[in-house]
Write a protein that binds this DNA or RNA. Structure first.
Lengths: 185, 185
DNA sequence: GCCTTAAAGCGAATTATTTGCGTTAGATGC
DNA sequence: GCATCTAACGCAAATAATTCGCTTTAAGGC
């Protein structure tokens, strides 16, 4: 039986909050499960049983932090909408905080769906942008193509390349996609 | 003073081998530093001092495992070479073992260069393919463009999408790149 | 309101990690 | 070669984290 409400929910909320607070106060290096437990007013064994280890817990919190809180801004045409979204995305994700969240999110159980949720968030935002284009009658690529051509390169560089990423790069990816074939497959 | 040779090198070799052996015998879930130390004939504190924690050690081993052992096969033209390389890449990397290595490699210290080395390996292999094309006088895209259009999408899906990746997908990425503009920027 | 039971609390036992200090063996200069 | 220097290792004690059996609590179904 699943018990999503009541005490379980309160514990989860308390633990997540404790992680966020301590992360801000001490940085991740100092985080330990006993410490989080104490701050959350919970016994360590509760966290061990529910999350398994610190990685899993951090992964959960990171995914929550990565959830977009607003729909993408509308600018009247597909190119502007996509550019704007990609620029904001790269700015958030390539920042030290963003990189840390992404890493943490990936750190969760490989068979879990934390990483998939991250991709899902991006896909949903892109779908909104593309739906607006369709309403206006603009030819637009599919969500998958935007993921391949815009999101994937940004993520690849964030994860595998140390250097910094600029909004220019994000804009270039969008332009490269839209120039080629406005009405993608 | 750095001491790459002698005892240090032997210890590193012994520890790495121990990790590989135990990973194969017990799986990663059962791996602990004391266990690795015992197998390597080394005291745990040696590992703690040199690597810090299990993540860092696994990351080192993973990067080593990800190093390509042979240059990309040559087939006489750019399209065939790239396709062949991408197919082999996705086959190795999207497998359960490959996915695990990639995750482990990324898990190392964010300011370390383990992740960058992975990207470096791919870039070098691609550079070889592109150099062959140049020798033949074929127009060819730059390494960065191949990373963006071929490697990044594969990696993105490996990391963020649970489903399976096929050689067809890899081939499609290569074809999409070469169709657009044979003489890329 | 009374069961049932998933989830939390508690504490002891186990295991991992840190740390100070002595020792070993590559490296360097003569 | 030989003496010297010192980074890296070994050892062991102290500390901290993790596991586990058992008890208690409270959410959800009747």
């Amino acid at each position: 039986m699943v018990r999503p409400g009541g005490r379980s929910a309160r514990v989860q909320e308390a633990v997540h909050s404790a992680v966020r607070e301590l992360q801000a106060e001490l940085g991740r290096a100092e985080l330990t499960i006993p410490l989080v437990a104490a701050r959350a007013g919970v016994t360590p064994s509760t966290i061990y049983r529910r999350w398994g280890d610190l990685q899993e817990l951090l992964s959960d919190v990171a995914v929550e932090n990565l959830r977009p809180d607003t729909p993408p801004r509308a600018h009247g045409n597909l190119a502007a909408d996509l550019r704007s979204w990609a620029e904001q995305f790269i700015e958030e994700m390539a920042s030290p905080v963003g990189r840390a969240y992404i890493r943490d999110a990936l750190l969760g159980a490989p068979d879990g769906d934390n990483a998939a949720r991250c991709s899902q968030y991006a896909a949903e935002q892109i779908a909104v942008v593309l739906a607006r284009a369709a309403e206006r009658g603009e030819g637009a690529p599919g969500v998958e193509l935007v993921l391949d051509r815009v999101v994937a390169p940004m993520m690849y560089r964030i994860l595998f390349r140390p250097g910094d990423l600029t909004a220019d790069y994000a804009r270039g990816l969008v332009d490269g996609l839209l120039d080629g074939s406005a009405a993608g497959r």
